[in-house]
Simulated assay, not measured.
Amino acid sequence: MLIAQITDIHLGFEPDSPGEFNRQRLDRTLDRLASLDPLPSLLLLTGDLIDRGDVDSYRRLREALEGFPVPWHMALGNHDDRANFAEVFPEHTFTEGFLQYEITSNPMRLLVLDTLEVGRHGGGFCNTRAAWLNARLDEDADTPTIIVQHHPPFECGIPWMNTVPEEPWVQRLAACLAGRDNVHTMVCGHIHRASASAWNGLEVVTTPSTAPQVALEFAAIDTDAPDQRPLIVADPPAYALHFWNGRELVTHWDTAEHRTVLARYDANLQPMIAHMFGERPPR
């Protein structure tokens, strides 16, 4: 099984621009994903779908997704607006006011969580959301499960993007997931970079954005003294492919940019490829 993920699209950052930079980057990424062989089973869009929470930007996002060849599913981030999202994407299911729902795609189950906390840049996960997650996990303790959300619960090391373990929402989420042996991985966005962590024993990965990326700067930051450090950089738009091999989820990251091919599978390299397959036991 192959799952595609894009995140932090931030449509509407240039609200009056018909050729918006972020839309161009999104279109290139979707074109790349639509050309894959095999196609992914589904596409996850993991929050900060738009930049200012406005209806028009959600409409442009829906337009960009029209005709995409596989089903797509969304989570919300801190730049999103629940009411405006629901107006444009009514097929998405809200539970007690939160965009939390289950996706079943044999042989996996995905649980999409809502970590949007209005007024916060960082995440949130209240008792209502936790009760929903606990109920879903209690219903099925066997099916391999992926948690999908916008905010990663780990401390990434980039000071202005950090989440710290003392945050109440992190502790509440950790309590829900403790001892859940069938939860294999959590996939997130928000950091605008590829990163991975063994958070409380659970693999958590973040995917780079289709919008520009966050600069990799670990130096301590003084909130009262701007130091001209880079915050956002124009690295290429990117995506993740999560491959379920029957035992574990393996994540690959790639960009949607053109690259120079240095070798192809031709007659010269056929013996090497055949030899590599010959080394493996039959399946």
Rank of each mutant, 00 (worst) to 15 (best):
L231Q: 11
E217V: 13
A196N: 05
L61T: 06
R23C: 03
Y58S: 03
S57H: 07
A198R: 14
P69T: 14
P168M: 09
S197T: 03
L177P: 00
D16H: 12
H190Q: 04
V233E: 14
T207L: 10
T210E: 02
D51Q: 14
G19A: 13
W199Q: 03
I146C: 11
P153K: 06
T104Q: 12
V205F: 05
L113T: 04
E91R: 12
R120Q: 12
M108R: 05
V55D: 08
W72F: 15
P107Y: 01
R52W: 14
P271W: 07
M276A: 11
P153D: 04
L76Y: 00
P212D: 07
W244S: 08
D27I: 14
C156Y: 04
V261E: 14
G122A: 06
E166N: 13
D142H: 13
C156D: 14
I3G: 08
E248D: 13
L11M: 10
F154E: 03
H242L: 15
H192Y: 05
D181E: 15
G97S: 09
L133M: 07
P271F: 03
T115I: 04
R229Y: 04
L61C: 03
S197L: 03
E102T: 12
E217D: 10
N162S: 14
L45W: 02
H79L: 02
L99E: 01
T207G: 12
Q24A: 13
Q213E: 04
H10V: 12
A194R: 11
E166Q: 15
A267T: 06
P230D: 07
L33K: 02
V112M: 13
A240F: 01
V204F: 10
C176E: 11
P153V: 01
N162H: 05
A86E: 10
C156E: 09
A131I: 02
I50R: 07
F85P: 00
T260C: 04
Q213G: 00
E91Q: 11
D54L: 12
D31S: 13
R109A: 06
Q149D: 01
V183T: 07
R32Y: 09
E279H: 06
W160P: 00
V70F: 07
P159F: 10
A263S: 13
A240T: 05
T206Y: 10
T104I: 11
N162Q: 15
P281K: 07
F98T: 01
A178E: 15
P15H: 12
D56H: 11
R264F: 00
E248H: 10
P153N: 03
W132D: 04
S17N: 15
T128F: 02
G179Y: 08
V170Q: 09
F277I: 08
D254N: 14
A83C: 01
D266Q: 06
S17K: 12
V261L: 13
N162G: 06
S105G: 01
V88H: 09
Y58E: 05
I6K: 10
Y101N: 02
L110M: 15
T104P: 00
A263K: 09
L30W: 10
P165S: 13
T163V: 15
R82V: 01
Y265L: 15
N22V: 01
Y239A: 13
E257M: 08
M74Q: 05
R60S: 13
R180D: 04
L76M: 03
L113Y: 11
Q228K: 11
F243W: 10
L110S: 05
V205K: 09
